[in-house]
Simulated scan of single mutants.
Amino acid sequence: MKTFFTRTASALVFVAVMLGGILWSPFTFFLLFFLVSTFALQEFFKLMRLIDTGYNNIPSWHKWGATIAGAAIMLAFTGEYFQLGDISTGFIGWWIAIIFLLVLPLGEILLDKDFSPRNVGYSCMGLLYVVIPFSLLVNIRLNAIDIHYTPENVGTAPGWLIPLLLIIFIWINDTMAYIVGSLIGKTPFFPSISPKKTIEGSVGGMILAVVAAGVYGYYWGQQYLSLQHWLALAGIAAVFGTTGDLLESRLKRMAGVKDSGNIMPGHGGFLDRFDSLLLATPFAWIYVHAFMMA
């Protein structure tokens, strides 16, 4: 019972912080995912150190340099939206990111007597796997004014709508997959990675997530997004969100841990909470830019 209340309380706090950060303003949206990205990156590095103990030997300047590079990349994706005097934060971010991405491998080669190309690769992998997706999510939010929301290009939807929908569709997919899998799930889906997942549950969750998006979009949502966008975004969130969950589960199995962290009592770490979003976001960004941008 104590565990149940702990999980419930931490989940409520998590939802409140997420909604506040997403809905309050563009800056709080950026700040929220900037912090999430930074902590998730550290969890990824921890997993890599467990998978390959050689990654424990990187010098402290490498650890801090990779973290700063990640922060700079996120800043770069803000583009011209935020300004520091006459200079955009995006411009500052790109230059810092370029400098650190050049210095890191050079410094590793010149200064580390135990230089290993794999260590540089792990750091770059973290930036690609964790930082880039969150940066693309911020980019979608800040460029919402350029999105064609409806065939008439009314553009009446709030900027946070698409990022929030991705999160909601992923949650619906996960919830429905659990329910369907509990009721009729029999065939294991990647049992070596996630033994509890079933094909029936996973497919059922995907279908029901798209159906839920279609029903809401058809009856109430077309003033914000055209129906095909509701269906497409739900499909992306369901398919690639499920894949993202399996990918992180694979990393945790390789590292020999149950959770990536313990920031949320009973719910694991940042990677555990956002693993689905990490893979769904890049494909959503591609869809938005290919079919929804002005």
Rank of each mutant, 00 (worst) to 15 (best):
G268R: 04
G181A: 11
I132W: 02
A9F: 12
I92F: 06
P265Q: 01
I147H: 06
P158C: 03
M264Y: 15
G269H: 07
I96C: 07
L271K: 02
L278F: 05
I168T: 13
P163A: 13
G85S: 12
F270G: 00
P195L: 08
T198M: 04
L165V: 14
K252D: 08
A284K: 04
A237I: 10
T6I: 13
L110R: 13
T156G: 06
L208C: 04
V154T: 13
A237D: 10
V154I: 13
I73H: 04
L136F: 11
G159A: 10
F14D: 00
Q42G: 05
T38K: 04
K258S: 04
A157D: 09
L84T: 12
F30R: 05
T150C: 08
W64R: 09
Y149M: 14
P26D: 14
V180G: 00
K186I: 10
V103Q: 07
H62R: 04
T8V: 11
L225N: 02
Y149F: 13
E108R: 07
I109E: 05
E200W: 11
M125W: 11
L75V: 01
L127I: 12
V215Y: 05
Q228T: 12
T67G: 02
K63M: 15
I193P: 01
D146P: 01
L102N: 14
L104S: 00
V180W: 02
F27K: 08
T198N: 02
M254R: 10
S182C: 06
S60K: 10
F270W: 14
F190P: 08
W160H: 14
L225H: 05
M176L: 15
R141V: 09
G241R: 07
A69C: 14
D114A: 12
G20M: 05
R141H: 09
F240A: 00
N139W: 12
G244A: 07
P151T: 04
E248C: 11
G79P: 00
L165M: 15
E43P: 03
R49S: 14
G79F: 02
L50A: 01
Q83D: 07
F39K: 07
V211H: 04
G268L: 08
T53Q: 14
F30K: 01
L231K: 11
A76F: 11
I184E: 08
P195A: 07
N143K: 06
V120S: 13
T78Y: 03
